[in-house]
Design a protein around this nucleic acid. Structure first.
Lengths: 183, 183
DNA sequence: TCACGCATGTAATCCGTTACATGATTCC
DNA sequence: GGAATCATGTAACGGATTACATGCGTGA
């Protein structure tokens, strides 16, 4: 699976401890591939065994020591090779859609409340993405390729959340029309 | 997890065998919650143990016998209760975005090829959704609530794929501009 | 003193994937 | 004769989630 590659991807940008990685996977990369700290620590052990990363224990005053991981040449090659493999569209797994699919089983008002709550959460995500976007846009001149790649993944989130909001509105409108036509 | 609820959702619409369910989860419900036949059979056993569904063995001439599952009262109640629980936005797990995030590690032409392949696959999905949409639109008069709920989940897919295509185009354009500015 | 941030892990359970396994009928 | 469809499962493995577990330093 791609968790290992996602870790290699982060490490290709800078050497990190497990703790640092866990933070990255809760924001930035986490916006499109999330992972808990337990998963990350386990995966780091495996990747080291495979020789794709190396550890260096860093002693810190007034802080616990940390293990800093970095890519080996083999790790970087493995990452590049993986990027070049074709990938299929990510399957969607969305609880809200399962609920709406059989939404007629609950009162429409309840359905509308659920959708409104979802809408608000997606709105908050969009706001976060747009704040981060401002930091990219503040960059003087054209973005260098590495940053531009990151920016484009963020744009995907913005597109996604924007279209989700549009769908929510369309759906709420549809559920408002003739709300009791067949109950 | 929601696999059990997704199964209850399908069974709430009509009694099904494991085989029938597997087909539903490969299309229709499968567009937003997929599952393999192995998962389904395992889950059916559990749901029956919990008393949320019942089996009836149906003998068929010139076909293997089949086990037809249907919701019990308890199952329907459990489903309704689950629908009413609030749910958080589904996490995104998209390999392509991980790849693009570190896309600067491979030649831009390769990145563009990857994106074009993805674009095409999303286009095909959109075409499928639009074909199904036509069947809903052919329905005379207003759609009854149950069908409308299904239609609205399909609309979500249409919104999603459309915005994905727009993002792909934006991204391909961005990668075409100054393609060698910093390599 | 209490909560939070830094830092690392184990254990149990559950979910998901891949491979293996069988057997009848129908259509080409 | 061979492939596809109907129909059901087991087994092994790997990925993900939840809970448990520890311990220091800083700042309110």
């Amino acid at each position: 699976m791609a968790l290992s590659q996602a870790i290699l991807a982060v490490l290709s940008q800078r050497a990190c401890s497990g703790y640092d990685l866990a933070k990255q996977f809760d924001g930035s990369v986490g916006f499109f591939w999330n992972a808990s700290h337990q998963q990350i620590y386990r995966e780091l052990t495996k990747l080291e065994e495979q020789g794709l990363i190396t550890v260096e224990v860093i002693h810190q005053e007034s802080r616990p020591d940390k293990k800093q991981y970095s890519l080996t040449i083999g790790g970087e090659t493995a990452l590049r090779d993986w990027i070049l493999q074709p990938s299929s569209p990510a399957p969607i797994k969305d609880e809200m859609l399962v609920k709406l699919f059989v939404g007629h089983l609950v009162p429409i008002a309840e359905l509308q409340t659920l959708l409104q709550t979802q809408r608000q959460q997606h709105e908050e995500l969009l706001a976060i993405y747009k704040t981060i976007e401002q930091q990219f846009l503040a960059h003087p001149g054209e973005l260098p390729l590495q940053l531009r790649c990151q920016y484009l993944t963020l744009r995907n989130g913005i597109h996604f959340e924007t279209s989700w909001l549009a769908w929510c509105d369309e759906t709420l409108t549809s559920l408002t029309q003739n709300p009791t036509s067949d109950r």
